[in-house]
Amino acid sequence: MTAPLLDVHDLVVRYKARGLFAAPSKPAVDRVSLSLPAGSTLGIVGESGSGKSSLLRAVLRLVPVESGSITLDGQDWLAIHGPALRHARHSIGFVAQNPFLSLSPRLTIAQILAEPLLARGDKPGAAMQDRMALLLSRCGLPPDFLARRARELSGGQAQRVSIARALALNPRLLVLDEPTSALDVSVQAQILNLLMDLKADFGLSMLFVTHNLKVVAHLADQLMVMRGGSVVESGATARVMSAPQQVYTRELMGFGRRA
């Protein structure tokens, strides 16, 4: 068995308590470990305050880690700093919840897709144009979208652009933060289909963070349920969904309809 692509061990994230004499705050992420094999998808499920977003932001290196380790592709991910980190970030693609907020409102789609390519050091030109058109077509959009702006797109189209941008540098890992929560059900299905196609075609590894257990259960190989900063339950998707060990997991499956 090969080493996992992403390995998180005993991770603790704690936000600073406000005030000089305030007691140290409870950790947002409390000794969480996870392991993501290359080519597989891990669904991280939790409600507000579960620590799922803090975990995601720690993996993205957007918040400082108090203790624990993150290993990405065999490298100590937390030991990389400065310009080296900027370069190393190219191996992670990120898709945020609301595409209209995560795509610069003032830029065209071409300018948005060019950002990661320019950051890698690519030179503008015909090759870059072709690359951007290819990225769009992989995400099911025609090349003439390059001239548009995000606000001219529908929610589903904008989220496709957001995914295309995340894939621009052929990342090893795709991190998704509630990628379908702002979308309608019928559009959500389109985006989930796209993600499943990308996974099948490119062997993409995904970290899929959401509050909606049913959504992520559809495409995740492994599930991890978080509550209050800790992991409540984790395991293979089929096992967690068919025989949840925790009452809380069952509650998260929602009310009403039973499939």
Binding site: A88, L101, A119
Partner: peptide
């Protein structure tokens, strides 16, 4: 704190460029 600024930072865009472009 805007998501599109954060997205640029996660992509490895340099800080100078983030300030000027975004």
């Amino acid at each position: 704190g805007q998501p599109y600024v954060e997205a640029a930072s996660v992509m490895g865009v340099s800080q100078g460029r983030i300030v000027i472009r975004h």
